[in-house]
């Protein structure tokens, strides 16, 4: 499933196969490195990301744009809001 039109990704991180530091740590790093309003995407092959990533996004108060299933991995898209 494609990322909806109108969502412009500022930074995409390929964290497939990352166990340490792992996709969530890569996402947090990505969110820290962009400006408020920008969108970060992280590619993950770790099934745990489906739980970990939305939980952090909610805790940190950012906007979870969505989860997009690709062939063998998932793309998680987050907008930095604060």
């Amino acid at each position: 499933m494609a990322v909806p039109e109108g969502i412009s990704i500022s930074k995409e991180i390929d964290a497939r196969g990352s166990f340490c530091p792992g996709p969530l740590m890569e996402l947090i790093r990505g969110v820290k490195s962009v400006q408020v309003g920008e969108v970060v995407s992280v590619l993950s092959s770790d099934p745990g990301s489906a739980r970990d990533i939305p939980a952090w996004v909610q805790k940190a108060g950012h906007e979870f744009v969505g989860t997009f299933q690709e062939e063998g991995y998932t793309r998680f898209v987050v907008r930095k809001t604060r």
Binding site: G22, L24, M25, W56, K59
Partner: peptide, 8 residues
Amino acid sequence: PLNRVFTI
């Protein structure tokens, strides 16, 4: 930094 004490 994460939702558990270690990333793995």
